Computed example of a mutant assay.
Amino acid sequence: METKNLTCVVCPRGCALTVTVEDGKILSVTGNTCKRGAAYAEAELLRPERMLTSTVTVEDRRRMLAVRTRSAIPKDKIFDAMRVLYGTRVSAPVQIGDVIVADVCGTSVDVIASESLA
């Protein structure tokens, strides 16, 4: 049995969570003041995800285009996704929300433009 301490980031309250884990299963979550804290602890320990924000090169220009994932991707895919974005080049025009990389690293999540470029 193992005990992990987390700070919930779902709301501004920032509850100090204590999570008891055994054999990859959560046995208990304490310290949360709402049920969202328990859901956060489970997601963070069993399948952590993060939003990815970065930039890609714009061809024929001396600037970069800000991009982000449409939703969170598995934390263990972040560096793979960054390698894909490092080699990605786009051409103007680009509208905010345009798909820059579809289904990045097999996550079913698209990387989209965070800004427009004429």
Rank of each mutant, 00 (worst) to 15 (best):
C15H: 00
Y86G: 09
I26G: 03
E22L: 05
V29E: 05
V19N: 02
M1N: 08
P74W: 04
R47N: 13
V90C: 06
K77I: 11
I78S: 02
P12C: 07
E115S: 10
E115W: 02
V94T: 06
M51V: 13
Q95D: 11
V21Q: 03
G106F: 10
T55V: 08
V9H: 10
L27G: 12
V109L: 02
A118I: 09
R70P: 01
R36G: 10
T53D: 07
C105K: 10
T20H: 05
V56A: 01
R61L: 13
T55R: 12
A81Y: 02
A92V: 11
G97M: 12
R50H: 15
V56T: 07
D98I: 10
A92D: 10
S91G: 09
R83K: 12
E59A: 15
M82H: 13
S28C: 06
V29H: 01
E2T: 13
K77S: 14
T88V: 04
K25R: 15
E115Y: 00
E2H: 06
A113D: 06
P12H: 10
V101Y: 03
T3K: 10
N5P: 00
S71R: 14
T88P: 07
T69D: 01
M64K: 13
A102Q: 14
M64G: 13
T3G: 01
A38M: 07
E22F: 09
E22C: 09
V19T: 03
V19L: 00
T3V: 10
C34G: 13
L46K: 08
R13M: 10
T55Y: 03
V84R: 08
L52F: 06
D80G: 12
V21M: 09
R89A: 10
I73F: 02
T69I: 00
S28H: 11
V99Q: 03
D98A: 14
D23N: 15
T7V: 02
D98T: 11
E49R: 15
G24Q: 08
T88W: 04
